[in-house]
Write a protein that binds this DNA or RNA. Sequence first.
DNA 1: GTCGAGTGTCTTGCTCAGCGAGATAATACG
DNA 2: CGTATTATCTCGCTGAGCAAGACACTCGAC
Lengths: 150, 150
Amino acid sequence: MASQGPELEIVHLLRAVTVELGLHSSRFARRNALHPTDVRALIALMDASRADEEMSAGRLGALLGLNSAGTTSLIDRLERGGHVRRVRGRADRRKVVVEVDEKAVELGQAFFGPLIDRTVELLQGYDERERAAIRGFLEGVRDAAVAEEG
Amino acid sequence: MASQGPELEIVHLLRAVTVELGLHSSRFARRNALHPTDVRALIALMDASRADEEMSAGRLGALLGLNSAGTTSLIDRLERGGHVRRVRGRADRRKVVVEVDEKAVELGQAFFGPLIDRTVELLQGYDERERAAIRGFLEGVRDAAVAEEG
DNA sequence: GTCGAGTGTCTTGCTCAGCGAGATAATACG
DNA sequence: CGTATTATCTCGCTGAGCAAGACACTCGAC
C-alpha cells in the first residue's frame, strides 16, 4: 500500500493532512467545550471580521448548512458561552449581526497560531519555484473539489 | 486579506483545500443518506481492508472517538444500510470484525475516484524536485498537526 | 399613508447520534 | 475450576439539528 507510485503516495499524504488538521480542530473544540459546528462557525465569523464584512445569522447558517432553527440554537450556544454577541442590524432591523468576542479571537489565535507559524516556517524553507508548485497543486486540488459537484 | 505575504496565502489555500474536501465528503454522505461519522467509518474500513487488516468494532470506535454504545449504533446503521457486515472473530470470538460490502467500496471509488485521478494528473505535471517539495510540505504540516497535542 | 408580499429570525415539537452505566459473553490466568 | 479482563451490546438519556410555522421588520404598489 505504500508502494503505489509517487503520485498516490502524495494523495494519501494529503488525506492524512486533512485528517490531522480535523483532529487538531476537534482538540480545540473539546478543550473549549465546543462542538465541531461551533468551531466552524467561529472560523467563519473570524474570516468575515478580518474581511470587514458583517455576518448575519442567516448568512452564517447558510454557510454551515444549517436551517434557521439550527442557526438560532447555534448562536444561542455561542452567546451563552460568551464567544459571540447578537447585535440588531442598523440598516435592516430584522437582521441579527453576529460579532465574535475578542477573547474568542485570542483563544483561537493562541491555539491555531503555533501551527500556522510552523507552516509559514516550513514554506520559507522552499525557493520560489518550489513554493509555486505547492501553491499550484493546492489550487488545483481545491478547484477539482469545487468542480466535482455532479 | 489576499495580500499577507506569499506564505500566509498558501496557509489560507491549504485551509480552503481542507474545507472543500470536507464539503466533497459531505456531498457523498448526503447523497447516500450517511452521516459524517459513517463516511469516516467507511474510509477507515476501506483503508484497513486495503492493508489486509481486520477491523474490529472496538478498534473502529476508538479510531473515530466513539464509545462502545456509539460504535454499536454506528455499525447497526451501516449494517442496516447494507454497507457493512458483522462477522464474529474466529480467533477471539468476543470480537466482531466489520467487513465493508463490495458495493460500498465501488460506491466510494465511483465518487472519490475522479477527484483522486485529477489529483494524480496534477502531480504528473510537476518534475521530481517540485513533487518532492509538495510531499515535504504535506509531511511537515501533518507532523506539525500531530505534534501540536499540548 | 397603508396594505400586502417578501424576508430574517425565533419558537415549538420532534428525531436520532452519541454518551454513561451496566449487562452479557468470551478469553486468560491463577 | 473460578476470578479478572476484555469485547460487545442494551437501556435510558441529553442535546444538535430538522420541519413547520409564528413573529417582526422592510419595501414596493397603490
